[in-house]
Nucleic acid binder design. Structure first.
Length: 442
RNA sequence: GCCGCGGUAGUAUAGCCCGGCCUAGUAUGCGGGCCUGUCAAGCCCGUGACCCGGGUUCAAAUCCCGGCCGCGGCGCCA
């Protein structure tokens, strides 16, 4: 008599393929409930979709009595006959003979049917409910798919996956943007980047390494594109001819992420996210930052030669490149030395510029990379030039005294890729449990 | 960190400038009733709110100050 969940079929199976006229067990959440006197319609939702159950008093008095008392988002199981029904969503419905309520839900604190009816802050307070909305859940299915594609790309191209420490004894690049923690009786920090460790991976002899892991930034940004904790897709590769080799890998990794997202979820993504990128770009154009200055200036954006691009300039550049090259992504190369970290390799012929790049996706920086300086003496000089004390980098510097190949790499912000791909307005949407200067829970 | 805007039922909002007409409106939710083909079901009845603290005033949701929280811009970054 009782419903056996081990016999359960997913909604998608019942809607496509399962035999009409057979008896099936379904289970899930009550999406919508419509009570019509002696007739109750239940829209049941599981991870594969939604379908209608109809509970009729003259079929089962017990089930009907239970159904009348249901509340949205309660968890139920049902057993009944699958029938065709022109009126039902999906063309099929289950005529319920048995109904079990596993968990009755209280009135909901947020509107989960339509994400736009509740502010993002409230939605995040109730994230587990917010994610019951298929649109919001889809963001993380896409994220998982993109991470999988990146991982697969790296594995297929000879990179070794490494796991570096996130508790560190010294800040990577000096500076105030690290979180301090107490490590027993010693001061310590949360890693803002695996930068130095992935270089170690190369120098250790793995030659090509990558890591997908958390990065922490203690910068009190109040913007739609910053998190204090995010997922960084990092790679580093040895024996390169130039930073062009690094860009090629970054390009292929990012394009394979976009391709994977579209291939697996393209249809649903287009349904829920009107601003999504709907095709995979063939390639990513490269322009030097000096060309970018010119393009921007001729479009009326004031830029300072030798400076980093402001967020406004990046946005504008994204528009220009889309117009001129029909490309949603662009590499901006040869950033000025003065705005890049000490380990960046400078151009041999123009030392005020570097062998480095940023990758912009629809006008937003999603990756940074370049060739690293591997010559010990040059590194020491560059540290000093940046006003840093080589004494504090002894461990790092020592790696370059015992055989370090020419190498380079990049870091890609996973949430930013997801955000720009889907056309989200706020990066917090692309993070399961976002952390920002104010938010620490849930 | 600096700057701007904001905080009204469970949720989303109107009202705030120009204090009294607010016994705070609307939608949705929630509770109850009618209904055997709905599809954000419908119709009827009911329910529920001015962020906290101080001040100005005969009178404060409305004006002023402080706090907390939210949203966004900038710097910076992925």
């Amino acid at each position: 008599m009782a419903i056996r969940l081990s016999e359960r079929k997913y909604v998608a199976e019942l809607l496509h393929g399962a035999k009409i006229g057979e008896k099936y067990v379904v289970a899930g959440w009550v999406d919508t409930i419509r009570i019509h006197g002696k007739l109750v319609f239940i829209i049941l939702r599981d991870r594969t979709g939604k379908m209608q159950l109809v509970v009729k008093r003259n079929i089962s008095e017990n089930a009907w009595r239970e159904a009348k008392k249901l509340s949205p988002e309660s968890v139920i199981g049902a057993k009944g006959i699958l029938v065709e029904s022109k009126a039902a969503l999906g063309g099929r419905e289950i005529v319920v003979e048995e109904l079990v309520v596993y968990s009755k839900a209280d009135p909901l604190p947020i509107d989960i049917k339509d994400h736009s009816k509740t502010t993002l802050a409230k939605r995040l307070d109730w994230r587990f409910l917010d994610l019951r909305n298929p649109r919001n859940q889809l963001i993380f299915l896409v994220e998982a798919e993109m991470a999988r594609a990146a991982r697969e790309y790296f594995y297929n191209n000879g990179f070794v996956e490494i796991y570096t420490s996130k508790i560190v004894g010294a800040a990577t690049e000096g500076g105030a943007e690290v979180f301090s923690i107490v490590y027993f009786d010693k001061p310590a920090f949360l890693a803002q980047s695996p930068q130095l460790y992935k270089q170690m991976g190369v120098i250790s002899g793995f030659e090509k390494v990558f890591e997908i892991g958390p990065a922490f930034r203690a910068e009190p940004h109040h913007t739609t594109r910053h998190l204090t904790e995010y997922t960084s897709v990092d790679f580093e590769m040895g024996f390169i001819d130039s930073y062009e080799d690094v860009m090629r890998v970054a390009e292929q990794a990012v394009l394979s992420m976009i391709q994977a997202g579209l291939e697996r979820y393209g249809k649903r993504v287009r349904e829920f996210f009107p601003n999504t990128l709907d095709r995979v770009p063939r390639s990513i154009p490269r322009i030097t930052i000096r060309e970018a200055y010119k393009l921007l200036r001729s479009s009326g954006v004031s830029v300072e030669e030798g400076e980093d691009l402001s967020s406004e300039a990046e946005r504008k550049l994204g528009e220009i490149v889309l117009r001129e090259y029909d490309a949603p992504l662009v590499f901006v190369t040869e950033y000025p030395w003065r705005v890049r970290p000490f380990y960046t390799m400078r151009k041999s012929d123009e030392p005020e510029w570097t062998y480095s790049f940023d990758l912009l996706f629809r006008g937003l920086e999603i990756a940074t990379g370049g060739q690293r300086e591997h010559r010990y003496e040059v590194l020491v000089k560059q540290l000093e030039e940046k006003g840093l004390n080589p004494k504090n980098f002894e461990w790092y510097l020592s790696m370059f005294r015992y055989g370090a190949p020419p190498h380079g790499g990049a870091g890609i912000g996973l949430e930013r890729v997801v955000m720009q791909f889907l056309g989200l307005g706020n990066i917090r949407e692309a993070r399961l449990l976002p952390r920002d200067p104010e938010r620490l829970v849930p």
